[in-house]
Design a protein around this nucleic acid. Sequence first.
RNA 1: GGGGGCAUAGCUCAGUCGGUAGAGCAACGGUCUUUUAAACCGUGGGUCACAGGUUCGAAUCCUGUUGCCCCUACCA
Length: 481
Amino acid sequence: MEEQHEFRTEKVGALKEAGVLPWPDRFERTHSASEARELPEGTDNVAIAGRLRFIRQMGKLCFAHLQDASGMLQIMIRREQVGEDIFKIIKKLVDVGDFLGIRGHMMVTRTGETTLQANEVVFLGKALRPLPEKWHGISDQEACYRQRYLDLIMNPETRERFDLRTRVVRELRRLLDDDGFTEVETPVLMTRPSGALARPFVTHHNAMDIALYLRIAPETYLKRLIVGGYERVYEFARCFRNEGMDPSHLQDFTMLEYYVAYWSYEENMAFTETLVKDLLTRVYGSLDEAGEKTGIRWAGDWPKVALSDLVERDAEIRLADFPDADSLRAGIKARGFEIEGAEKLGRGSLIDQLYKKVCRPKLTDPMFLTSHPIDLSPLARRNDENPDVADRFQLVVRGWEIANAYSELVDPIDQRKRLAEQAGLKAGGDIEAMEMDEDYLLAMEHGMPPISGWGMGIDRLIALLTKQSNLRDVVLFPTLR
RNA sequence: GGGGGCAUAGCUCAGUCGGUAGAGCAACGGUCUUUUAAACCGUGGGUCACAGGUUCGAAUCCUGUUGCCCCUACCA
């Protein structure tokens, strides 16, 4: 045991001997620290509680700062006012990191700091380990992830970042609820992975003796609910993907998905723009303010650009001139773009790679990217005019895909065909391809209205808004080895 | 998966050419009734990430391992 842990453990015994409970069960507060600071000078019977963050002791007088969820407040404790016994306890048995309750009256010190002067000090909880250094705090990134509580105590900007996350999620929920959406919960454990192209986590159910998969997306369950008569559903869905980790990917992330009956992707696109703008207005006060805080120009109409037009603009390749994978591959090479493993990719994947490599890095302000290749969108509706592309859009901001949406494929005959293709790829070793999903097809065959659905990476949205480049910085407890 | 970087006291960090471990804060013992990183006097605290190797001698050089970070490839 470390020295400091040992000393503090001994203090627990000393507290008990002095008749003080080291971990009492309650304390009645009248104000938070920040509320107390607003009280007029002289206000009496003010009680606050919090963690001791700083303490400056003199012989018969002691200044300290208590931190609660609202902030910090200075307290002043005079021996003649609180009594010998408790003053001795404060001096000998109380450490930075402990919890205290203070009852007293508001005053202003000689240097002008609003302070709660104690009539009574109540011990509220012993800390056996010290807090990080008071000036430099904690900055080791691994320590911040593993001991997020210390990061939260020491770094106010960390707390603000997570408070923003909470506020964004709350406002999204309110906006959807107010628009007639119903929030639902669908299975996290699924008997087969579906709804996205991704490698799942596999686990085993002992009693049933079957493999279960952690969901990679809630999509097919939410669409079953549309079959069941829901017309606007959404879910904040924790999803899991067993794939590589880097600053922009988590294996455990939050996706907001919604589905709306009778909408096409175009109405969905209009709704998305309104939804995000309303969200930002509620969170930041105005779009201009949001732009100021996030460094992104949210105001103004967001352009809609077809993927093929974007590729033509940035890569100077007219996709219509390259109708198959071989010719496109040659065309890409002729323009001097390097795409790794190009020989194995189909036409859709080549376009996708070209976009990611050449176009995406140039995108900054919010933009809708539309009309993706059909073979990259196995659950999306085929466009009526151009059978090669899907009725699909992505909201791209600063090169990040924030939301992905389409007119859903509701034709069970086409769906069966496309899942069969995916299953073929899977049998051929494509670990991310989809499986045949008879249960979902059964639901579809009972009839679906037109649907447009939508998914948004909440972690990415928050990272974008808080200017974090690593998604781990917007997740309270990121997965670490 | 490929490449690079980092790991020293509870925290933040020094540590020279390879010569046997340092500071500030925190802790412990004191002084101290208006402090703001309080001040002052005194004291203790280390598996230098781990395991090997080279060497008379390793925090330092070499190899391996572990963890974290960054770049790169892929999935949102």
